[in-house]
Nucleic acid binder design. Structure first.
Length: 348
DNA sequence: ACTCTATCGTGAGACGAG
DNA sequence: CCTCGTCC
DNA sequence: ACCTCACGATAGAG
């Protein structure tokens, strides 16, 4: 389940590593997405709607913004993660978790849909989050879009959350370099911090939460040294603690197979055939959405040509202008404890 | 009395009509 | 703009 | 036929 309380820690101790943007700020960017998280969120949020439809709509919205998505699929989870998965399965009163990494029919449907949308996808050898981060590290992708914080200890410089198709939705960007700078720790020390906070790959020391863990890492730099300086009575170290294995998982990046990422035009007829005839989505919905997609694309293309003709320097100013006018008032509530005034921004 | 942590329950999307 | 019903 | 995650409230430990 990601890194426990890492989002809170950043918000409190390194707010400058967080910036608030909107979806159009990512025009032209290559963004890696953890597909299983996207799909599962759709499934959880809309039991009545197939995740395929959600994936269809959201992906088209990305493409309309000239965002280049690349979807990453989970492979076989690492050995260390099985404990966490089994625990989760038991909580859900459900028999045997999928530890094999074999693609479910759900996954195959997603692969097929993405192919028809002309969007590239990659099968990760292990955790999708790890490969997403690696794509950013090697420059193949500009950022990872995910809801959980795992990609930061995996080394992705930029993590984007709340990237969805909602109008006016606020996108939250986390900068790993800014975070490390502010906390005054290295990537290796940050990984140790995340292990202390609690990750999927090993146990944690009960009684150490975000405040204490951060202080201890800043003072002693490594888990080994931290262990030497805590009270063993009140904070017992887990038996057979696999923290070294967890550390290795975060720091040893999976090697990618130099993926040649190619985006092509969506195949509308094939999409109708698949979504409507195989999956029983209403033809009207698919057609209407594709119509809108084509129109949005066309107007964007015209806009770009106009910009080219008028010179480039003006274009950024125009975008800035629209951004300012369109942007809702977003008072940077850094140290505001009386945050009960939600819809009442005080007149400056 | 205070600060920090652990645990449990809960809610989460995107569209178009009006 | 907004609210609300529907999507499968 | 399954695979989530973060937030808020609350209770308990130090």
């Amino acid at each position: 389940m990601g890194i426990t309380k890492l989002a809170d820690l950043i918000r409190f101790h390194a707010p400058d590593a967080i910036s608030h943007k909107e979806i159009s700020d990512f025009t032209g960017k290559v963004i890696a997405l953890d597909t299983s998280i996207v799909v599962n969120q759709f499934r959880a949020a809309t039991p009545t709607l197939s995740p395929l439809t959600g994936l269809f709509f959201r992906t088209l919205t990305f493409l309309e913004h000239d965002i280049k998505p690349v979807f990453v699929f989970d492979g076989k989870p690492p050995e260390e993660k099985t404990a966490a998965l089994e625990k989760r399965a038991e909580a859900a009163s459900w028999k045997c978790p999928n530890l094999t990494g074999t693609a479910s029919s759900q996954t195959k449907d997603c692969l097929h849909l993405l192919k028809l949308l002309g969007v590239p996808f990659i099968q990760a050898p292990g955790d999708a989050e790890a490969l997403c981060a690696q794509l950013v590290r090697e420059g193949t992708a500009d950022a990872v879009a995910s809801e959980d914080m795992d990609t930061l200890p995996f080394g992705a410089n930029i993590l984007i959350r709340q990237l969805n198709a909602k109008r006016d939705s606020e996108v939250v960007e986390y900068s790993l370099p800014k975070l490390l700078e502010k906390l005054q720790i290295s990537q290796e020390e940050f990984v140790d911090l995340c292990i202390l906070l609690g990750c999927d790959y090993c146990d944690k020391i009960t009684g150490l939460g975000p405040k204490k863990a951060l202080t201890l890492i800043q003072k002693h730099r490594t888990i080994e040294n931290v262990v030497l300086h805590i009270n063993r009575q009140t904070h017992p170290v887990p038996h057979f603690w696999k923290y070294k294995e967890a550390r290795k998982i975060f720091l040893d990046a999976p090697q990618t197979v130099d993926p040649k990422l190619i985006w092509t035009e969506p195949d509308e007829e094939a999409l109708v055939g698949f979504l409507c005839h195989v999956k029983y989505v209403k033809v009207e919905r698919v057609r209407r959405r594709m119509e809108r997609f084509r129109q949005t694309r066309e107007s964007k293309r015209e806009e770009r040509e106009r910009d080219k003709a008028a010179g480039r320097s003006r274009q950024t100013r125009m975008e800035d202008f629209f951004r300012v006018t369109r942007k809702r008032e977003q008072p940077v509530e850094a140290a505001d404890s009386s945050s009960s005034n939600r819809k009442r921004p005080k007149s400056t």
